[in-house]
């Protein structure tokens, strides 16, 4: 490891360097320990004995058909809606990101800002704005009445997730396309490819891992979405309550253990997503 040409300087083994290394890494490990302790606390709390049933909360939850069923339904609903959202976000995201990365637009700063707005917008406001669009505007009403009902339906979940997650998709994919030297496409063009072929045969295959990483991240982001979904799709258990909404609902009904179980489940999903993202070579800022 230490012989690799790009080995970190501190790995070379001088005593003073080791001291520096120890001091600096202690900060790193302290923070990491803090994160792990917080997450573990939730998991450990679930194994505590519930005074009502005399067995650990987790067993009680597994036996409670209604609560367990509610969480399972929310889990499946989250999986399905976020998968659809991630697919749709890719349909919009790949062309948009490529366009943003390769073409010069006159109002690039403006376009860039608008695309970033759903990311920085407070999620609750995004939800209210979506509800307002679908119920109070002519376009929205037309969609609701003639095409597909959105408000308080499962479609609404996908729409709310899509509104925010697509912005992330475009961000992540643009970072990928930015890293691919446009000269590759230029060379392909000079060798007889059309512009379409250069995109299809050179840029997209080169971006493959980045696209998959972006897809996974978008999917995870859609899975974690909360406030916009609650406003637009409502929070009806067994109908429109996704995982995050279920955690909230149970917290507000005093079922702390169910909320915490959902939290632990979501942390596990997030961890798996991150591992996939890193393995696929995903880069750039995530949120």
């Amino acid at each position: 490891m230490a012989t690799a040409p790009d080995a970190p300087v501190a790995a070379l083994g001088h005593r003073r360097d080791r001291l520096l290394r120890a001091i600096l890494s202690s900060f790193l490990f302290a923070y990491m320990g803090f994160i792990l302790a917080v997450l573990l606390a939730s998991a450990i709390w679930l194994t505590r004995t519930d005074r009502a049933t005399g067995s650990p909360y987790l067993f009680g939850l597994a036996r409670d058909e209604q609560l367990g069923g509610e969480i399972l339904f929310a889990f499946k609903l989250s999986l399905v809606t976020s998968a659809i959202t991630a697919g749709l976000a890719m349909v919009i995201g790949i062309p948009s990101a490529y366009a943003l990365s390769r073409f010069r637009f006159r109002a690039l700063a403006f376009i860039d800002t608008v695309i970033d707005l759903p990311i920085v917008m407070p999620p609750l406001i995004a939800g209210i704005a979506l509800l307002l669009f679908f119920r109070q505007t002519m376009t929205g009403r037309f969609i609701e009445d003639h095409l597909v009902p959105v408000v308080y339906t499962k479609t609404g979940i996908v729409v709310a997730q899509f509104f925010v997650a697509s912005a992330f998709a475009i961000r992540a994919l643009k970072a990928t396309f930015d890293q691919i030297n446009p000269r590759f496409e230029g060379v392909a063009r000079s060798l007889g490819c059309t512009a379409w072929q250069a995109l299809w045969k050179v840029a997209l295959p080169l971006a493959r891992n980045g696209i998959i990483a972006g897809l996974v991240m978008t999917w995870a982001r859609a899975m974690g979405e909360f406030a916009p979904i609650m406003m637009l799709a409502g929070s009806s258990p067994g109908r429109t309550a996704v995982l995050s909404v279920t955690a909230f609902l149970n917290m507000s009904a005093g079922h702390v253990e169910a909320s915490i179980a959902v939290v632990v489940l979501m942390v596990i999903i997030a961890a798996l997503t991150l591992v996939t993202f890193k393995r696929m070579g995903g880069q750039g800022y995530l949120w």
Binding site: S235, S236, P237
Partner: peptide, 10 residues
């Protein structure tokens, strides 16, 4: 009856 649950103000 399809319910939606959140704070009364919301």
């Amino acid at each position: 009856v399809q319910p939606t649950y959140t704070g009364s103000g919301c």
